[in-house]
């Protein structure tokens, strides 16, 4: 560990980690380059598109614009940590059911943003959903199938699917 590096103790997808990172390292770079968790995507790089969305203690953040150090002592959840034992999360199942994606580049961030919303407010209204997803751009789908996926996920979760 060089003089400039700092220790980062954090939990990523349920695994406790102790990493030495540069103080200015971005969370997205640590996830993608150090941990090989390439599901989180880099697009706009300026906290507009949401492709890099991960959950920090359950709250959605843009990993492209958050210092890795911000994750110290906190739980990071990425798209790779969502399915349990190969069993997809109901939000992932819902995106499959409605084909809520085309190229798929926005999808991991979109799914994480939806999960955060439904964890927090399972019966979010369609208006809430739109407002919440303002920070996630999709250039392919025109959003309609994504909104349909959210509705499907809400029904599944209400029916007791394990989230």
């Amino acid at each position: 560990m060089t003089a400039r590096q700092i220790t980062l103790d954090t939990t990523v997808n349920g695994r406790a980690l102790s990493l030495s990172v540069e103080p200015e390292a971005l969370l997205l770079d640590v996830l993608r380059e150090r941990l090989g968790l390439t599901g989180s995507k880099r697009s706009c790089d300026v906290q507009v598109c949401g492709a890099c969305t991960v959950l920090l203690d359950g709250l959605p953040v843009s990993a492209c614009s958050v210092l890795a150090y911000e994750a110290r002592g906190r739980r990071v959840l990425t798209i790779e940590g969502l399915a349990r034992d190969e069993r997809l999360h109901p939000v992932q199942e819902a995106f499959l059911a409605t084909a809520g994606f085309q190229c798929g580049f926005c999808t991991p961030g979109m799914i994480m943003a939806v999960k955060a919303l439904l964890d927090d407010s399972p019966s979010a209204t369609p208006e809430d959903v739109r407002e919440h997803l303002r920070g996630n751009i999709c250039r392919c789908t025109g959003y309609a199938s994504i909104l349909a996926a959210v509705a499907v996920a809400q029904r599944a979760l209400a029916d007791g699917a394990a989230g």
């Binding site: 390439t38 790779e80 992932q92 995106f95 499959l96 084909a99 994606f101 798929g104």
Partner: peptide
């Protein structure tokens, strides 16, 4: 028929590998 997409699981799990991956 509107069958499920072939690339679906790879894309919803983050396993789909793009150039930078």
């Amino acid at each position: 028929h509107s069958v499920e997409r072939k690339d679906g699981v790879a894309k919803v799990t983050g396993r789909a590998q793009y150039l930078d991956d």
